[in-house]
Design a protein around this nucleic acid. Structure first.
Length: 696
DNA sequence: GCGCCGACTTGCTCAGACGATT
DNA sequence: AATCGTCTGAGCAAGTCGGCGC
């Protein structure tokens, strides 16, 4: 496309502010959100000032990629710098911590009985457990040979309970006539019966898939009779399940307690494993129960039967020298292997997509935590070279080669809009969703001029989980011209980037920075946005106001990453309730103010001590009510803004927890206000190591 | 270079636990 | 004690990405 090259060459000259001037990078609000909903405005996420940070642990991470360097090289490098540097960098802190730790230990050993508050404090087991909870894996060295563990012992998965046939009084009708189903057919029927109230049991694809799979479970007699799903009546089964769940709710305290205890027992027995001398929590220790597959969005396989998992389907992974888990009586494992290059404890192949499912550890485990930490270190690496990379892709917009231009424009989208990479998907196997590289012509509209803005790109597509991405934003002229070029002579269903896929893109990124892939941009942009928004938004105000600021910063990230949720069913009502409370509070306030005024007048008239005191009392009351009102208003704002935005995903997966920890420490906010228990467990490493001056 | 697969992360939803209120 | 609303974690689907074999 040499003509395009010429056309673009002139317009580029003005555009050389990169590098010299601080870069402004606009995250426009999605027009998907009205102004009222989106109060946070996105401003420059840059300029990014990259200071050299001698005190920072940049020499610690990232490790050379396991598969890129040879084993020997890796070992050499690591032994040179890692352990020593860590010790030096965190010296003061480490000492302090060690001291504290030892003190705690002493406390345990010497005067354990002093901890009378805790009934079990004297119990040896408990002491051990506490010790376990305190284990700071982040202060230890990591494996450098690509292995994930040395020792692994566990009890295997817990299986779904066997099918309990329906009581005889619960009947199934076909074409109005009672029909007793065989156990196998009945079980599958109950799966459908449980979903009767769901919208998708009315969907054609769902019904068709279900019926097809159900028929496979029927006896030949049943098959001969049951030929039309519309003639099936599952309502008694449905009623039965409703009654059951009602009964469960109505259970007495004792019964509930019993169930809880049983669950706890199961958790204690199967929910933990021993990995390298430490007891670690398993994330999911149960196999998935059988049921009907419900894909998200327009999934072609929805309604298909998800098979029951048997021990014969399970591959166990553990170390050779461990006590192997026993399969349930009368059954065998499919295989027992000893692969310490992977982290899973057990796996099976699922029958809908043929993909593998795993039993793995909890996010609080060392093995997940290390990986998570490393992820943020890679993103921090990107921070250091993002300017260079941005300069380069902007340069590439002028390339003579189509593939390079496409790569550069795609990367621009990934960077600016935080799009996902967009792998190709097998057609007809899953819902039709796309990411950046798989965008099609039909997903993009170009507006040379619209509402006073030039070069506006409109993106409208279904992304992961069939969540709609809709965004209209001005882009640089050069991007716009390139997009026009990519669209030439194409049909709506053609790929926008026909010379690009994720593999090409990631290979390119790998050359730009070690460990760089498309998703690192999401992590980087999310974390840097949080940090900047926190800087910008944090008010010099009360704690609730500060937390509102935090939530707004978090929200900015969620919007950037397009993390949405269905508005909670009770949203309108709960909003109304809150408003009622606010109204009441306002009335209270005006009453209190009147009283204060009256008291003042009284005091002015009498000038006695008593009236002076009354004034003070009333003044305090007004103040208190004002505070309460403010708190409620803040809550209302927060909730309204959050109506259809999901904060959880970004908090859990994209935001370097050290940013939040540092923010809490800086402003004296208790960490519990930001992270709940699970989150604190997951981010224990960050809570322990980040100081108030931490910079992402 | 491509298609496929394995391993692991990311993402949304909903039941039920939990805590506040009546 | 019952009821109500919110929060949390489990559950599991759906992505990303690297490696392998051809």
């Amino acid at each position: 496309p040499s003509h395009a090259q010429g056309e673009h060459a002139n317009s580029m000259q003005k555009d050389s502010r990169l590098g010299s001037k601080p870069r402004t990078f606009f995250y426009q609000s999605r027009i998907y959100f009205t102004d009222a909903e989106l109060i946070v405005s996105f401003r420059e996420t840059s300029p990014v000032v990259v200071k050299s940070e001698p005190e920072e642990d940049n020499s610690f991470y990232p490790y050379p990629k396991h598969n890129k360097a040879s084993k020997r090289e890796r070992d050499d490098e690591e032994f040179e710098y890692k352990p020593k540097k860590v010790k030096v960098e965190h010296d003061k802190k480490a000492k302090k911590r060690k001291h504290e730790y030892e003190e705690d230990e002493d406390d345990e050993d010497i005067k354990p009985k002093k901890k009378t508050k805790d009934k079990k404090a004297t119990d040896g087991k408990k002491t051990k457990k506490e010790e376990e909870e305190k284990w700071k894996w982040w202060e230890e060295e990591r494996y450098t040979d690509g292995s994930k563990w040395r020792f692994l012992e566990h009890k295997g998965p817990v299986f779904a309970p066997p099918y309990e046939p329906m009581p005889n009084k619960v009947r199934f009708y076909y074409d109005g006539k009672i029909m007793k189903l065989s156990a196998a057919a009945e079980e599958v029927a109950t799966f459908f019966a449980k979903m009767l109230d769901h919208e998708y049991s009315t969907k054609d694809v769902f019904r068709k898939n279900f019926f097809k799979d159900w028929r496979k479970e029927m006896t030949s007699e049943e098959k001969a009779i049951i030929t039309d799903l519309n003639k099936c009546n599952f309502s008694e089964m449905n009623d039965y399940f409703k009654a059951q769940s009602e009964a469960r709710k109505q259970m007495s305290k004792e019964e509930k307690k019993k169930i809880k205890e049983e669950n706890e027992r199961l958790l204690q027995e199967y929910g933990f494993c021993i990995m390298d001398n430490h007891k670690e929590r398993i994330g999911n220790f149960r196999t998935e129960p059988p049921g009907l597959f419900r894909g998200r969005g327009d999934h072609p396989k929805m309604g298909m039967l998800k098979r029951r998992i048997r021990p014969e389907d399970i591959i166990i992974n553990c170390s050779k020298d461990s006590k192997q888990p026993k399969p349930p009586p009368g059954s065998k494992w499919k295989e027992v292997r000893h692969d310490n290059k992977v982290t899973w404890l057990a796996s099976w192949t699922e029958n809908i997509q043929g993909s593998i499912k795993y039993i793995m550890l909890n996010p609080s485990s060392r093995i997940k935590g290390e990986k998570d930490w490393q992820k943020y270190e890679t993103a921090r690496c990107l921070k250091k070279c993002v300017d260079r990379i941005r300069t380069q892709y902007r340069d590439d917009w002028k390339s003579k080669e189509m593939r390079i231009r496409q790569r550069a424009v795609a990367l621009y989208f990934i960077d600016k809009l935080a799009l996902r990479a967009g792998n190709e998907k097998e057609e007809g196997e899953t819902a039709d969703t796309v990411g950046c590289c798989s965008l099609r012509v039909e997903h993009i509209k170009l507006h040379p001029k619209i509402n006073d803005q030039e070069f506006v790109v409109e993106l409208d597509f279904l992304g992961k989980d069939s969540i709609r991405y809709y965004n209209k934003m001005p882009v640089e002229k050069r991007v716009f011209k390139n997009l026009q070029l990519f669209l030439e002579n194409k049909q709506p269903e053609d790929d926008l980037f026909d010379r690009l896929n994720t593999s090409i893109l990631n290979k390119h990124l790998q050359e730009l920075m070690d460990g760089l892939t498309a998703k690192v941009f999401r992590t980087y942009n999310a974390s840097i946005t949080l940090q900047q928004q926190l800087k910008e938004l944090t008010s010099d105000d009360s704690i609730p106001a500060k937390i509102l600021s935090y939530n707004r910063a978090n929200r900015a990230v969620a919007i950037l990453c397009n993390h949405q949720r269905a508005p909670p069913k009770t949203f309108e009502k709960s909003m109304q309730n809150l408003q009622t409370k606010i109204d009441e509070k306002e009335k209270q306030l005006s009453t209190a103010r009147k009283q204060l005024k009256a008291a003042k007048a009284d005091h002015k008239a009498s000038h006695d001590e008593k009236s002076k005191k009354t004034v003070e009392v009333k003044r305090k009351a007004v103040q208190r009510i004002e505070e309460q009102l403010m708190k409620l208003q803040v809550q209302a704002t927060d909730r309204e803004e959050n109506k259809q935005i999901a904060l959880g995903t970004s908090k859990l997966n994209y935001l370097d927890p050290r940013i939040s920890v540092a923010w809490c420490k800086k402003y004296g906010i208790p960490i519990e206000k930001i992270y709940n228990k699970t989150q604190r467990e997951k981010f224990a490493w960050a809570i322990d190591m980040a100081e108030k001056d931490y910079e992402f």
